[in-house]
């Protein structure tokens, strides 16, 4: 069980790090106009966090098909959101 807890704590640290990176990217930009690269970075970091959460917290490690479906759904949503953000920019 200790190994499982360590794995979950590592997943927590990775998600925390990705969140900090997203905020840093947003602050580093700071411009009044949207930036395409910033959007791509933000959505990429969000996808990475969601994938870690699905794999370790939602525990889809042993359900490969559902894990792929979850990641695919999130990726599709984020791509649509990215496209809309770029159009708005």
């Amino acid at each position: 069980m200790n190994g499982a807890i360590l794995r979950l704590v590592k997943a927590w640290a990775v998600m925390g790090g990705l969140t900090a990176a997203a905020v840093f990217a947003g602050k580093a930009h700071g411009g009044a106009r949207p930036d395409a690269m910033l959007m791509v970075v933000l959505m990429g970091l969000t996808f990475a966090k969601a994938a870690v959460l699905a794999h370790h917290y939602l525990d889809l490690r042993h359900a490969a098909g559902w894990n792929s479906a979850m990641r695919g759904s999130i990726a599709a949503l984020l791509i649509v959101l990215l496209g809309l953000a770029l159009v708005a920019g």
């Binding site: 933000l42 959460l53 699905a54 939602l58 999130i74 949503l77």
Partner: peptide, 9 residues
Amino acid sequence: DLVWLIVFP
């Protein structure tokens, strides 16, 4: 939790 990870950015 997952929903908030997407809502926040």
